[in-house]
Design a protein around this nucleic acid. Structure first.
Lengths: 214, 214, 214, 214
DNA sequence: GATGAATGAGCATTCATTCAT
DNA sequence: CATGAATGAATGCTCATTCAT
């Protein structure tokens, strides 16, 4: 333990104060999210976040003990949000392939969910900050969950005769995970970016049927 | 302008001086590559590079006007190396699917080619440093080439009856590009990382035949 | 001006309110004393004091306009406490040398009197915070008193034939004052710290008889 | 080991570069010494030191890895300087009491030696920064030396019949060490501060003969 | 050309103090 | 009166970049 908080106030959960605090924290998180998305971890400065929120720098430190902690909070939020999306999809009474497609859609964009995006980008961003995150909470457990949700869908699909049960689930999973990163290539190649849905459809089509001729 | 060194004095191309300069530049690039791979852009310091090369910090600035320029040089190198790998594969007298699998292998690892790795990691690392790079040279042109090589293979495949010619090449291409990022999930989920080849096989299998039952 | 609280409203001296205020102030002083003794001025934080007392940080500022003022109040308290100890000793019907020895004991330790300790430590701590203190109240007057008490004892001793009256009282005083600082050397050199009394005895012996052979 | 120096340059001991470096370091030390003496550790800022020296802040960090290190260097310097003074005095062919008096003079002032002063003030300044110092080098060993030099003189004195050999040397030493701190009382009490020599004479007189009447 | 000491803008973090509730 | 969230000036430290030698 390193923190030197002396005043550990535990306010009533529903009180006005507490609600205001929550709002403040939310505002900071949203702003930081935007800055992080724009500039990345190293170029996101506490000064800028504070300025954009319209508060003093010190105020951020009232809610997050350090830049790293703020970042981890952001990442965790993204991860949980992403996971929650998947959980909901996984439980829906739809054919396995439709569920998978919905997951692709979520991963590819769904602009409403910048949170997921943050998660995805950090996530796929190589070794960037991984160490930092690990120090604070175990991602493994959450990734296990993620993998479990997807594996479950895949197995549902096999059971329902939708998917070829001669292919090991793990292989299917691996390929699917590889597809989750939205390719950055597009921005570079092309004029018009595909919508999350269109992209998911194209990718999904291949995922399900492959490209081979008969 | 494409050259990144800014020596005003252009020595005779084959002279001793010039050869030594080239070696020096090469040494810097290789070292920086290693550091970049280990620590990422922001934690790669000019001091460390200089120390590892065994030259003075100022000397780096004789060859690269800034850290960003050095980075861009590195990235470009990686991109060209990757592209060259693809060009070679594309030209080989192999079935299209084998050629595609070789490309996957190259993207997924091929530890001998740290250069490609650098390229891939930066590349898939979200917005990281993209701006910077764009300022210096147009990636678009190179990506166009990359896409062209792959599209060519896909069309070869269609012509040879290997691939389903009712699927637009662009769709195939999009899905293939989405697969090029090696998923980071592995490290998190699992015990044993797959070799580049194994991973390419699994992913390739799905890419070619899909996961659907008949 | 000597009072350090700046409440504009002066309540009836014996009222309940006033008594509670006094208690509050006393509690703050005691706590601050402890923190100051433990951590020193710069590492004593208003947050910690408030937390230890169990009040809000702002409340401290109701009674002390600034950290410096709080410190000065503490110092003054220590000084007065030390002075009071000396006053009591000075008035006792004991041989001069016994009274001096008691003063040494008080200066060297007397663990019960943390207040005196605070005073002594700040006091002997070089220039530390002197300016600050001077801005707020004149120590000179109190030191004059301190010197007067001791000089009086020394002169009592001369009159009683205990001390050599060919030595100017001022010289005796100077040497005595020099001895009042407990040497920190001990902690560094040695195993077992002497008790305040043992140290006073040894130092006193030399003070009274010197170290010369006959 | 924590340092991240990459370029560990080992220059020729007598080279011009090296001499310049020494001068620079010396200048920083002297300036820092002055600031430390004026303001104490916590209010000595790296900015101020740099400004006074007329260099950039970063330059200080070229020579001292942190503020703490700078401080420790300063303290060590003071300690060694003080010790060296004592060593020289201890070896002189003078009566023991004259040697002790010289040591008092040195401790009390000798304005030329601000270094010793720094040492003395930190030293007597309570717990201030002790921890910090200990982390970096063992003071104990040096204090042992200091105590040894003085003990040696005391025993010389006993052997020569100057001092009463019925008093344990340790007692003599303890009292002497207690006298080493120049009393701060003076500044407060009096108009005219005594010169280091006058003070040493007065204190010495009492130390040698005590204040008792016959 | 090399060198590496010097630079200084930039950044995370702390904490005494204020003031709206 | 009491509170404690908010403030923001201050500070230690880093590191890409420059330039005199």
């Amino acid at each position: 333990m390193d923190t030197k908080t002396y005043s550990e106030h535990i306010p009533a959960p529903g009180s006005l104060k507490e609600r205001q605090r929550q709002e403040r924290v939310e505002l900071i998180l949203q702003t930081a999210e935007a800055v992080l998305a724009e500039k990345g971890y190293y170029e996101m400065s506490m000064d800028e976040i504070a300025a954009r929120v319209g508060i003093a720098k010190g105020t951020i430190y009232l809610h997050f003990p350090s830049k790293e902690d703020l970042f981890v909070a952001l990442f965790k939020r993204g991860l949980l949000s992403f996971l929650e999306g998947i959980r909901q999809v996984a439980g829906q009474p739809l054919p396995a392939r439709d569920r998978l497609k919905l997951i692709l859609v979520q991963a590819y964009g769904d602009q409403r969910k910048k949170q997921s995006q943050i998660f995805m980008s950090v996530f796929s961003g190589g070794n960037l900050r991984r160490e930092t995150i690990e120090k604070q909470f175990s991602m493994r457990e959450y990734f296990k969950k993620l993998a479990d949700y997807i594996s479950k869908i895949l197995e549902d699909g096999k059971a329902a005769g939708e998917f070829d049960d001669s292919i090991p689930t793990l292989v299917m999973l691996t390929a699917f995970l590889a597809l989750l990163n939205r390719p950055h290539y597009e921005e570079l190649l092309g004029e018009n970016l595909l919508s999350a849905e269109d992209l998911a459809n194209q990718v999904g089509r291949v995922y399900f049927h492959g490209i081979s001729g008969k």
